[in-house]
Amino acid sequence: MSRLSDMLRTQRFDDYRFYHQSTINQTLHLISAIIFLGCYALLFTDAAIAGIVGWLAMLTRQTGHFFFEPNGYDAVNDVSNDYKEAVKVGYNQTRKIILLLVWGSAPVALYVYPTLFGLFDPPTDRFDFVRHVGTLWLAIGIGGGLARMLQLFATRDLTTGLVWAFKVLTDPFHNIALYWKSPLKLLRGELIDSSIADADWGADEVEEAPHLT
């Protein structure tokens, strides 16, 4: 259990120090995390709407990554952006773009093929169409997570994939605990989180992440 806890802490620390240096990005992740908690609650009552809410949360956090997170040389960690993209355990920018293209194509596919080859009943009104989109978006989100987990099983090991999946599912709770002060830093004009340079989550966490094979 200690090894699993160490792996989870390492993944979270690398995610924080490498990919969440912008306080705007952190603030958007805080907002996204709160929205995701709403998505989790809706899963038990209305999965289709949960799919829409979940992707609203996802777009909020990806806006932070694509538009506000520094993409040049990382002087804080003394690594290049190419290195960070190569060692990222989860979805790097290339994988995210592919996933977002699949997500964006879902409404188009349902507009052209309203039943999606018999998967859905023909929509009777616009709300039916929206619910079908939400259901498909939920499936894409779950499928994307499972696909990356299986890829990690193949390229790394079973434990890394399972720990990453657990990390993703619990990220909303962890993000709230980690980034609740980020809006205050942003209001003070601190666009880059200066505390990252001094962050230390344990000796294991400051080791360089190995390249994925």
Rank of each mutant, 00 (worst) to 15 (best):
6 D>N: 08
33 A>K: 06
145 G>L: 08
207 E>L: 11
98 I>M: 05
35 I>Y: 05
12 R>M: 13
62 Q>C: 02
137 W>N: 02
87 V>I: 13
10 T>I: 13
123 P>Y: 11
93 Q>E: 05
95 R>M: 12
48 A>K: 08
170 T>R: 05
40 Y>W: 12
138 L>R: 09
9 R>D: 15
102 V>D: 00
112 V>C: 01
51 G>W: 13
81 N>A: 08
2 S>L: 10
181 K>C: 00
106 A>P: 00
31 I>M: 11
97 I>T: 09
187 L>P: 00
181 K>G: 00
20 H>T: 02
136 L>D: 01
134 G>F: 13
125 D>M: 12
169 L>G: 06
85 E>S: 10
34 I>W: 06
161 G>P: 06
53 V>H: 07
148 R>L: 15
9 R>H: 03
140 I>Y: 11
85 E>Q: 15
195 S>G: 01
118 G>A: 13
48 A>H: 11
36 F>I: 09
139 A>G: 11
176 I>Y: 10
173 F>D: 02
18 F>C: 04
54 G>W: 03
2 S>K: 11
186 L>G: 02
181 K>Y: 12
42 L>F: 04
95 R>T: 04
99 L>N: 07
93 Q>Y: 04
101 L>N: 06
3 R>A: 12
142 I>F: 11
171 D>Y: 06
119 L>M: 14
80 S>A: 09
139 A>E: 03
195 S>M: 05
71 N>R: 15
41 A>P: 00
95 R>F: 13
97 I>D: 01
200 D>P: 07
131 R>M: 14
43 L>F: 10
65 H>F: 08
20 H>M: 04
147 A>F: 14
80 S>T: 15
177 A>P: 00
136 L>K: 04
119 L>C: 06
133 V>F: 07
81 N>W: 10
149 M>P: 00
74 D>A: 10
150 L>V: 14
185 K>E: 03
9 R>A: 15
78 D>Q: 14
13 F>P: 00
69 E>T: 10
110 L>N: 09
103 W>H: 10
83 Y>S: 05
2 S>E: 11
150 L>M: 10
212 L>D: 11
159 T>V: 11
114 P>K: 07
201 W>A: 15
204 D>M: 12
197 A>E: 14
147 A>Q: 09
133 V>Y: 06
73 Y>M: 09
186 L>M: 06
58 M>F: 15
188 R>A: 14
39 C>Q: 12
100 L>P: 01
51 G>E: 04
37 L>D: 03
126 R>K: 03
64 G>V: 05
166 F>G: 09
188 R>C: 02
150 L>Q: 03
147 A>S: 06
198 D>F: 07
206 V>T: 12
25 N>C: 14
